[in-house]
């Protein structure tokens, strides 16, 4: 079953180091010299560690008028522990935005706040505002079911349902009561093609999805997430459970579908963020540290912390 991925020529992507960046959060900061040769001082990081919430550095290229999701002064608590501290950011429409940061920095929590998956966790409390296309998603009149239908989500581990490939893809349509076979088949093919897996599975649509390899399963999950034409696609570390070849395929796929969808991706893998995203937000301990165009953030970041984090010298 894995043959589909492993047979292809052994590409030498460096994305295999994705897991290596998952380091413990708090460890002694090694003050390495910055690129000008001076000893670096992590002022912002130090402030955050003291419990302060310094204002994030947002590059002017981020255009608030083009935002599909606007997050304003958003805080989130798990019971007594605050996981997100006053985050404000605008996710640009039609672009790929990557959330990076060391483990436990709240990037997954932020992502899951956007489709209110955190509602399922006991004792979660939020303050502030998240708006999707201008309307607040935490308003009491919002129907969380229809909200989630406007957002597609792909999880860390591939989670195809124990049914046939076809039924997996059309699941979001089925729960909307769609029964017409022609409509379902058309939508299935369209989104499987969009997820670049059509050629691999077109002959076994009626077989169980659990027989696919990990990478195929994840692409199937992406197909499932886009079949109902969501406004935003939320990807929660989609490649962290995959091997390098499968990761590469998913990355190519993300670049392709970003032409049609707004994508928000959480990743541990710096190279991945650099390759697939248009904008990158660096988070640390629940605060937004620096947010701007990916090229700028990776090459000429405003903060020394960002520079060291993206080059793997700290994190």
């Amino acid at each position: 079953m894995m043959s589909m991925d492993t047979d292809s020529p052994n590409s030498t992507t460096s994305s295999g180091s994705a897991q290596d960046t998952a380091q413990p959060v708090v460890r002694p900061v090694s003050y390495e010299p910055n690129r000008r040769g001076n000893e670096a001082t992590y002022e912002v990081i130090e402030a955050i560690r003291r419990g302060e919430t310094p204002a994030p550095t947002v590059h002017p290229e981020v255009d608030p008028s083009n935002a599909i999701i606007n997050i304003e002064d958003f805080n989130l608590w798990y019971s007594e522990t605050q996981a997100i501290h006053s985050v404000s950011m605008n996710i640009s429409r039609g672009a790929v935005t990557a959330l990076i940061g060391p483990s436990g920095c709240g990037k997954s929590t932020l992502l899951r706040s956007i489709n209110r998956m955190n509602d399922l966790v006991e004792g979660v409390r939020v303050e502030g505002l998240i708006g999707l296309n201008g309307s607040p998603i935490y308003a009491p009149s919002v129907d969380v079911i229809s909200l989630r239908k406007r957002l597609g989500m792909v999880f860390q581990k591939p989670n195809p349902f124990p049914m046939s490939i076809f039924e997996n893809v059309v699941y979001p349509l089925r729960i909307d009561g769609e029964r017409r076979k022609s409509v379902l088949e058309e939508a299935c093919e369209k989104s499987l093609r969009a997820a670049a897996i059509w050629d691999e599975v077109k002959d076994r649509l009626k077989r169980s999805a659990l027989g696919l390899s990990g990478g195929q399963q994840q692409r199937l999950c992406i197909a499932r997430a886009i079949v109902a034409d969501p406004e935003v696609l939320l990807l929660d570390e989609p490649c962290s459970a995959l091997d390098p070849v499968a990761t590469l395929k998913i990355e190519e796929l993300i670049s392709e579908i970003s032409e049609r969808y707004t994508v928000l991706i959480v990743t541990h893998n710096m190279q991945q963020a650099a390759r697939v995203s248009d904008y990158t937000a660096f988070m640390y301990l629940g605060r937004l540290v620096e947010y701007g165009p990916t090229a700028k953030l990776f090459q000429t970041p405003a903060l020394i912390e960002t520079e060291h984090y993206v080059s793997g010298r700290f994190g």
Binding site: N115, M117, L120, I145, S146, L147, R148, K149, G152, M153, F155, K157, N159, P160, F161, P162, M163, Y171, P172, R174, I175, D176, C221, R224, A225, A228
Partner: peptide
Amino acid sequence: PNSMREGSYGCGASKWQTMRRIVLPG
């Protein structure tokens, strides 16, 4: 597995739909 339920909720299924289509068959 809970990941199945999450996946279903993520697709916009209600609790009952998740139970009927994912939990019960499983």
